[in-house]
Simulated scan of single mutants.
Amino acid sequence: MGRSADYTIQGFLYQFNQTLSEILKASDDAIITIEGIVEDIEVETFSGIKAIQCKYHETQVKYAPSILYDPLLQMMKHFKSNSLANIKYHLFAHFPNTPLVTISSVELKGALNSKDKKLAKLVIEAAGVDIDGFLKVLTVTITPKYTDLMENNIAQLEALGFHKTEVETLFYPNAVQIIADLSIKHDEKLRTITKLDFLDTLRRIRSTAISQWTLALRNRAKIIEARRKQLKECLSSNVRLRHIVIFPRFIDQFDEQIVLFIKSFIDKYHFKISHTQTPLFALDVSHELLDEIAERLIGKDVIPNLGRPVKNFSEAIFFRDPMVLKDKKEFVLRLIRWDDYLGLTPTIKADDLFIIGDGDIQQLDIKDVNLEALSAEKFDEIKYMMGLSNGY
């Protein structure tokens, strides 16, 4: 799948691609309801509860029910603890020589009685599950080869008039993202769309979505390269007020990399006297960690303004311009916690707002602001897309 995406991510991508295929084949005014990825489960990004499982075997010569025991046991285990919840379980599977797979009580009992040592823990945890009840909420879908499905969707977009040179790195990943965004809405009425509205929305998008979904696609490297080119224009301007919001929860090695990332940004985009707009970094961290990061930045001679001379925060101090002594600025960035950033009343909006990581920004007023979302999980990739490094 382009990276070591777990079964949850793969299963969702199958679902999204199949949905995209149905949308592209539909009539313009047909109303398509996007199937929700969950019902009442809160699925955490990258590592959440698995309501969807996927078993993909391009080289499996012969299908046997035991191949599906692992995902079935995981689902039964979850259903056992959530049998009263309105949850639907989906199993996507691909076997080159098997067009149909039927899962009945026979196969489920076979899984529950498995002697495979690797499944021993799951067998114990799923024991006693209501098999008949589980079968009512289980759907098994045999999918075409993933690459065939993806390439067909790309060809369909080209046939609908989307420019061939941009389909793979702009329109196709954004089509997947639109479906993903709709699928997380709990209200079924909000998950409906017509083909015409879908295509109109897609045509208006000019930047590639960077998220857990698009970075799990097979053309990950091309998507990252395209995003780097798209960001180059706004980042090349000397006089731009930039706010960078960072949600660390799903970013690998955040603590080890955050200071180096901020320093790299300052060294690249805010080192000249002509760089008059002081960048603002809002981090979703505790007070203690923010202070620790500030101390480490000072140790790198990257002086932040925390809006407080000692303890109490002051917006006046936070938004004042730095004194410039010869060729050195008093401070080179504003540093604040995300929660405190939400409470600010700045008189001037940012020109560019970068959202790094995965977090809820619905409370932000982004009218007349250039929003750049980079929901990646590795600083190396983020730095490359933002032009702070030449490789990742």
Results as ranks from 00 to 15, higher is better:
Asn153His: 03
Gln156Lys: 15
Leu157Lys: 03
Glu158Arg: 07
Glu158Pro: 04
Ala159Arg: 13
Leu160Asn: 10
Leu160Met: 14
Lys164Tyr: 02
Thr165Gln: 15
Thr165Val: 14
Glu166Asn: 11
Val167His: 04
Glu168Asn: 14
Glu168Asp: 10
Glu168Leu: 11
Leu170Trp: 02
Leu170His: 02
Tyr172Gly: 00
Asn174Trp: 04
Asn174Asp: 08
Val176Pro: 06
Ile178Met: 07
Ile178Gln: 04
Ile179Trp: 00
Ile179Arg: 00
Asp181Leu: 10
Asp181Val: 06
Leu182Trp: 05
Leu182Ser: 08
Lys185Pro: 03
Lys185Thr: 03
Lys185Cys: 05
Lys189Arg: 13
Arg191Tyr: 12
Arg191Cys: 15
Thr192Asp: 06
Ile193Pro: 00
Thr194Arg: 01
Thr194Asn: 01
Thr194Cys: 02
Asp197Val: 08
Leu202Glu: 10
Arg204Met: 11
Ile205Arg: 05
Ile205Val: 13
Arg206Lys: 14
Arg206Gln: 12
Ser207Tyr: 08
Ile210Leu: 11
Trp213Ala: 06
Trp213Gly: 00
Leu215Arg: 00
Ala216Ser: 15
Asn219Arg: 12
Ala221Tyr: 08
Ala221Thr: 11
Lys222Phe: 12
Lys222Leu: 15
Ile223Arg: 01
Ile223Thr: 01
Arg228Asn: 11
Arg228Glu: 13
Gln230Thr: 06
Leu231Gln: 13
Leu231Ile: 09
Ser236Leu: 08
Ser237Phe: 08
Arg240Gly: 05
Arg242Met: 13
Arg242Pro: 01
Ile244Arg: 01
